[in-house]
Nucleic acid binder design. Structure first.
Length: 243
DNA sequence: CCAGACGTTGTT
DNA sequence: GTCTGG
DNA sequence: CCAGACGTTGTT
DNA sequence: GTCTGG
């Protein structure tokens, strides 16, 4: 396989083919405020949607990692609409005896959400969106001393929403913890040279169905968990997280 | 029946 | 909680 | 995902 | 090398 085309926008020196490795264990949230200042778009329906939910002033975070609280959109039954809440990244199943298992469940494969004991109930009833402006992947480049870091996102740094599931877990001591996981899917053409998986990025038209707990047709829900179009994304080699 | 797992990614 | 393996 | 730790005994 | 914490 000729991988040279994938490196046309790489930094100098990374012309060796990387071992095919690599998912979504770190990501980025740039405030919508910054997004608008940088790009001044005429309209962006995802950004407008999040602004309407009060996301405009969420803080900038360039290295969101598992076990941290992350901003999420989910349906609130009492309000009758979706709202933004903080969820701890790393899903702890309701039946889990301790919180250790949660640190492993940072991703959930889209293909098997309906079957896995840890995810199937959340897939039917507790879906959420995780806003982001990018995510990181690491790949081993032959001959290089360190792993190559990639910052991946939509073109023009547009904000997007990853598909997520959430749970409400009660510890033996009675402490409530709300946790979440990021749904992954097969990598698209842009990402597959460096990683086999990528987060499921939802199109705006699918937000409502994904968030609506009364929607339980899992076949239909699965249809929106397809790899995002490579042409609308970009992948940039970086030296350090946060740059 | 009980005991034990329940997950993903990447690496070999 | 629910399924699988023994 | 990466970075960093990786241990015990006895004492307070 | 493998696990834990963030």
């Amino acid at each position: 396989m000729d991988l040279s085309a994938f490196f046309s926008h790489d930094e100098p020196g990374s012309n060796a083919a990387p071992a095919v490795l690599p998912m979504c264990g770190r990501y980025i949230y740039d405030p919508i405020k910054i997004f608008y200042e940088l790009n001044n778009p005429n309209s962006d329906e995802v950004a407008d949607y999040l602004i309407n939910l009060g996301a405009r002033d969420l803080p900038r975070r360039t290295n969101i990692s598992p076990t941290q609280n992350v901003p999420a959109v989910r349906f609130d039954g009492a309000l009758g609409r979706s709202k933004i809440v903080d969820l701890k990244w790393g899903l702890i199943p309701r039946w889990s005896k301790d919180d250790k298992f949660g640190s492993k469940l940072i991703n959930a494969r889209a293909e098997t959400l309906g079957e896995k004991p840890s995810f199937r109930e959340a897939f039917k009833k507790r879906r959420c969106l995780l806003p982001a402006t990018g995510f990181y992947e690491w790949s081993v480049v032959e001959g290089a001393a360190r792993k190559q870091i990639w910052r991946i996102g939509l073109k023009d740094h547009a904000i997007f929403c990853m598909a997520g599931l959430y749970e409400n877990w009660r510890s033996p001591e009675g402490v409530e913890v709300e946790t979440c996981t990021i749904v992954t899917t097969a990598a698209n053409a842009l990402i597959s040279p460096i990683h086999e998986r990528m987060p499921a990025i939802l199109h705006f038209k699918d937000f409502e169905n994904w968030l609506d707990p009364s929607v339980t047709d899992t076949n239909k829900l699965s249809e929106c968990l397809i790899g995002y179009d490579s042409d609308n994304m970009e992948r940039i080699a970086i030296e350090k997280i946060g740059t």
